[in-house]
Every structure is written in C-alpha cells, then in structure tokens.
C-alpha cells in the first residue's frame, strides 16, 4: 500500500494479475464444470435407482437394473491387491535409497523408478494380455482358475504400475525425517538398519501411509491395462467379502466398465447414460476420499517434522 502511494504510476490492476487470476479461474471452472456435469448427467440414474445404485448387486442394462456394488468391490479389491504387492517393494526400495545409498546413487534409483512410472498403461495392458494372464493361469493352475483373466491378474499388473508412485512418495516421506534425528541415533551407537527401523520409519509413518493411500487412489483410476486383463464379467459379487476365491475369477471394475462398450451403447439414452455417469461419480468419490485422507496424513507428517527441526 505504501509503495503504491510512493509510486504514482502504479495501478492496482496489472496485466499479470488479471491474467493469472483469469487462468486460475479457467482451471477452477473446468474442475467445477466437470463435477457439475457428472452430477447433472447422472441424475436420471439416481432418480431411477436411488441409493440402490451404490449397494445394488445386479447390473443388467437391458432390463434397466443398475447396481454398482460388484464393480465397486472389483475396484477396491484390485487396488488393495496392487497395494499389498507394491507397498513392501516400493517402501523397501525407498528405505534402501534413503538410508543406505549415497545421494548420487539414490537419485539414480529414483530416476529409474520414475521412468517406470512413465510407461503408458496401454503398454502394460499389452504385456498383461500377452504374458501376465498366461503366467497367472499356469502358476495358479492348482486353484483351477477358469481363465487367466482374473482380479489377481489385474491386481498384479496394477501393482507394477503403482510401484513408482509408492516408492517416490515414500522416498519423500523418509527424506522429510530431519537428518539431526538420524545423526543422533547413529551417535547413540545404533546401526543404519536400527536407525531406519526405530527412527526414520516410525517418524515417517504418516507419510508412508499417505504414499500408500495416494498410490491406492491412482490404482483405482487406472483403466486401459485393467480393461484388457480383468475379464470384464458383470455381477461378480462374492459370497463372502473376505473370501479369496474371487481373486482367481473374472470381475469388473468401475473403470473397466466405463472404458468398455457400454459407454458407447448408453450414449444418447438418458437413463443408461446416467448410470454410466453415475459410475463415474462413484469412482470419483472413492478416489477423492482416498486422496484427501492421503493428503491429510502427509500434512500431519510434514507438521511433525517441522516441530522437530
């Protein structure tokens, strides 16, 4: 304020200011518009099915039965499976990088892992359809899977795909632990491993959890690779939620449904299209909840360390 008083040529509105806000506004409008569209377009389905849309177990579009529960189940199971497979490896690799490797090597490791993140999902899908589904089919032969298109196949493929996300976020979390703590621990005579296990990991725990959750969100949104190997079988509601048997059966996720032929069939028919958009909304809600939790944990972790240092 005082500066503008000193400088008579100063206008409050500069081009930079206007443009910056304008483009921020455009970005925000796009986000809000997209969300609004999902809500409006999915309205017919909510009107038709109500809450039954989320908990209903039957999806037969020809009979206008729309229940998304089996797809929600598929999405969650596949993402959790991916997480169980990827989290130990990703966090392990991050620990190795942060606690044992010199800086240069650690960056090299990180570049390599992030390169892995760049491989397009259609390429993963191609490898999945050609190699992984046959491999799963043969390896789990004793459990007699009907084919190689299983939730497990999709989960393993997704696990590979989210490994870099976990590793890179875990790396951040571990790096966020103040070096002074580490030094103090080493000074007390702890080995590097003991320091890692008793100081770094507990300190970084919320951050590590956040890494896992954010990766989980990513896994849930993946479409193309899952589409090619999951079998796309509707109405696969398990007899028991905790049963492992469905892992070796085909299934459907929210994304594989959205990427499939029904999106084209539904186009132009308000109710069916509404159901498809409704699936989109359910998917978005799931991902948003997971991401918010992850971001919240990350903040906790960050605050904690600021207090320490």
């Amino acid at each position: 304020m005082t500066r503008s008083a000193l400088n008579p040529s100063c206008r409050r509105w500069s081009i930079t200011l206007i443009l910056s806000w304008l483009f921020t506004g455009v970005a925000l409008a796009a986000v809000v518009g997209g969300l609004g569209l999902l809500l409006i377009e999915s309205a017919p389905a909510w009107k038709h099915s109500g809450f039954e849309f989320v908990i209903g177990k039957k999806w037969f579009f020809r009979q206008s039965e729309f229940g998304a529960a089996p797809m929600i189940y598929g999405s969650i199971i596949v993402a959790i499976l991916a997480m169980i497979l990827a989290a130990p490896v990703g966090i392990g690799a991050a620990i190795f990088g942060v606690e044992y490797l010199p800086r240069k090597w650690r960056l090299g490791l990180k570049v390599t892992v992030e390169l892995l993140a760049g491989i397009p999902s259609v390429v993963y899908g191609l490898l999945g359809i050609l190699l992984l589904r046959n491999w799963i089919y043969e390896v789990f032969q004793d459990f007699d899977p009907l084919s190689g298109d299983t939730l497990l196949t999709a989960g393993v493929l997704l696990g590979l795909m989210i490994l870099p996300t976990i590793m890179t976020l875990a790396d951040d979390a571990l790096r966020g632990v103040p070096g002074t703590l580490r030094l103090a621990a080493r000074g007390l005579g702890l080995t590097a491993t003991e320091t890692a296990l008793h100081v770094s990991v507990p300190q970084a725990f919320p951050g590590l959890l956040a890494a896992v959750l954010l990766a989980l969100g990513r896994a849930m949104g993946e479409t193309i690779a899952v589409f090619l190997v999951i079998g796309r079988q509707d109405n696969q509601w398990p007899s028991s939620i905790l049963s492992l048997k469905p892992l070796l059966e085909s299934g459907q996720t929210l994304t594989s449904k959205l990427g499939g032929s029904e999106t084209n069939i539904a186009y132009g028919q308000p109710l069916h299209w509404g159901a498809i958009m409704g699936l989109g909304l359910v998917l978005l809600s799931l991902v948003v909840i997971i991401t918010l939790t992850g971001a919240w944990l990350q903040r906790i972790s960050f605050r904690q360390h600021q207090q320490h240092s």
């Binding site: 569209l37 999902l38 959205l258 958009m277 998917l283 991401t291």
Partner: peptide, 20 residues
C-alpha cells in the same frame, strides 16, 4: 485441489469430455 485433480482417473476426463 491440485492433489485431487492429480488423482482424478483419466477415464473421467474421457467421459466428461465426451459430454462437453
């Protein structure tokens, strides 16, 4: 918001984009 946008599944860009 950036975090959330980053988490939005790419297929949603596809179907919302199709509508728009």
């Amino acid at each position: 918001l950036l975090y959330l946008l980053n988490g939005v599944p790419s297929i949603l860009f596809g179907i919302v984009g199709m509508v728009i």
